[in-house]
Design a protein around this nucleic acid. Structure first.
Lengths: 199, 199
DNA sequence: CCTACCGATCGGTAGG
DNA sequence: CCTACCGATCGGTAGG
């Protein structure tokens, strides 16, 4: 073992699979899946591209890991909202606030899920699409409940859900972690906007 | 008509630069800029990748061409709306309807401009970003005018503009040319939604 | 628009 | 996690 190698080993820790997945999320979000090479990803972690294969079986697996992690968070939020006993406007508020929090805390995963999920391998795409559909269904259900109670007006709840999701999904595009407004302020403004749209 | 059939039909014709740019838009929208190779693009047109270099100087130029074409359309709409003498709600309606029409008629360019513009070469990115900012400013101006007249309520017109643009920009993601609702219906529903959000 | 290439880089593997 | 590779593909060029 050379001195240089020992120095590197002492200076830097071993990378875990989780470190690799997180770095992959960062690069996929920044440069896209096809714009990111295994060598570049390795370089980001201070090692060679070929060394990544001791952590993952391939590049596709990294995309699946990044997207799955993000999708699980949105999934959990949707289930939590639907299971709550709040009235529809409060459920909608909970959805917006939860969505904003997930995106703000997992920006790389959110960006990757929105822009790169279409490049998932066929075998992995189906369950991810199912999770996205379930999230969309949760938004639609909240809207339908609100229409039933008279809190909302929506001639077409399916389309209304798409428009609410438009506002939610765009958040990862314009959110800046170093911005002046707090997440709570942003969530409140977004909630008021979509609430207005549903009346 | 399948791509293979179209390729056969075009087998004896010369392709123009415009054909190349259009095909590039289709592939960039479908598979992303980095997921599209010059060979694949050539194959789409029934010729070799190397033959494309008689039409364009390189792959980057194709991205610039696709994005510029789309950006010019949105630019023209923004200028037209601001120059009109309609009241703010009608200007907003004009903006939504125009946006929907542009996206529906130029889906590949719209998708490319939204998802691939970040891969523009540095020299070309600046003017494109400026056009996008100008479009955003037009939306904000309409909102500010509406606040001044009392038609709209928006504590923060800048944020309100972002939320309106969220709805507009998401349109290219869920619009399906073979859907049941007409563009006019979709534009009307989108208009009502954002109008509600501004009150 | 094709033939015939170029060097660079891609995802990935064998073996230690 | 590295060394030393592999075949395939990348964007692009020279010359016709």
């Amino acid at each position: 073992m050379t001195t240089a190698q020992r120095n590197r080993d002492l200076a830097e820790q071993q990378r875990s699979r989780d470190d690799v997945v997180r770095a992959a999320g960062r690069l996929f979000a920044e440069r896209g899946f096809h714009g990111t090479s295994m060598r570049h990803l390795g370089n980001e972690l201070g090692l060679l591209g070929s060394s990544l294969y001791s952590h993952v079986s391939g590049k596709d697996e990294l995309l699946v890991a990044v997207v799955s992690r993000g999708a699980a968070l949105f999934q959990a939020l949707a289930d939590e909202v639907l299971a709550s006993e709040l009235d529809p406007p409060q459920q909608l508020r909970m959805l917006v606030e939860g969505h904003v929090a997930i995106v703000a805390d997992n920006l790389d995963e959110a960006r990757t899920i929105l822009n790169e999920a279409r490049f998932l391998p066929d075998t992995a795409r189906q369950p991810i699409v199912a999770m996205r559909d379930r999230y969309e269904a949760a938004v639609r259900t909240v809207i339908e409940r609100g229409v039933a109670t008279g809190d909302f007006t929506a001639a077409d709840p399916g389309l209304a859900a798409i428009l609410v999701l438009s506002v939610l999904n765009a958040f990862e595009r314009w959110f800046r972690p170093d911005g002046t407004r707090t997440r709570e302020q942003l969530a409140t403004d977004m909630y008021r906007f979509v609430l207005g749209g549903l009346r």
